[in-house]
Design a protein around this nucleic acid. Structure first.
Lengths: 145, 145
DNA sequence: TTCTAATTGAAAATGATTATCATTTACATT
DNA sequence: AATGTAAATGATAATCATTTTCAATTAGAA
């Protein structure tokens, strides 16, 4: 039952949920379910391949439900200031072509069996960009105290 | 002085050193230098841009010295079984072209200032692959006890 | 020299994740 | 239904990388 409850919750949850987030959602509805079970279930689902685990560098593990056709393409924009994560799927066709090529070369050269790949673009999101400009301005002009 | 010692050490260190690894190297030569300073210095060097920080999913932060011409291209093969990390730079030209294109589209669409990107290929390295085949064989044939 | 701010090392605190272990559950076989 | 056994669970403790704290030291300016 816990596993079903967790799966149900993460189907509704937003993308890139953390373990803690999911635990809160599940625990509110099923107070008997503990944190350890959430961890264990997520690991299990990961092994089965129903979800993917990511690490975006903020110290939390994040997960993503494995649905849709492109299950081994995982591309994210990550704001290095606020940690916001944006999914994208632009230019998948062309990127896929290059990646296939790359995977072929690499797997032969290094005898490496490639299962999946992920690309992270690091930078500043819209909000943090404008925040930064604001503070730069005030610093430069000496206004706003 | 500690910072120089740390920089010196990481110039000699192998790629993808962890904080702990670096601490051991530095501490052996300069026993007065503590772990906290290594952490602090690595963070500092990261902000300055002298090193890059990576997270390959094994719970440790890894660093890479920022030298060479392609400083915003970071591509790795990561073995999901033993954690081995392989650097590669094949097909950089073509991959760069596609990536530039992607970055243009993305930064416009999401108002996102992209500073760098990294691509991780996940799978099995040569050794783990052969280990796996070995155990499969023995399991299938029932040999080797 | 004297003052001040930055740097440091040791140790404690933090926080996510994992391991432990007694209890509960599932379920196949009576 | 009753029983037995292995898997699953929840609470708690343990682990471990990283961060924070804080007193002591250092560096550099005045």
């Amino acid at each position: 039952m816990p596993r079903q409850a967790i799966l149900e919750a993460l189907r509704k949850a937003n993308k890139h949920f953390s373990t803690e987030e999911l635990y809160h959602v599940v625990h509110k509805k099923y107070p008997a379910i503990g944190l350890a079970t959430v961890y264990r279930t997520l690991e299990l689902l990961c092994q089965i391949g129903l979800i993917f685990k990511f690490d975006f560098g903020d110290g939390l593990s994040r997960y993503e439900l494995a649905v849709g056709p492109d299950q081994n393409h995982h591309h994210h924009l990550i704001c290095t200031t606020c940690g916001r994560i944006i999914d994208f799927s632009e230019l998948v066709e062309e990127e896929t072509r290059v990646t296939r090529e790359l995977e072929n070369v690499l797997s032969k050269k290094y005898n490496f069996k490639i299962d999946s790949h992920q690309t992270h673009f690091l930078g500043l999101c819209e909000k943090c960009l404008s925040d930064l400009k604001g503070s730069d301005l005030s610093a430069a002009t000496g206004t706003l105290k």
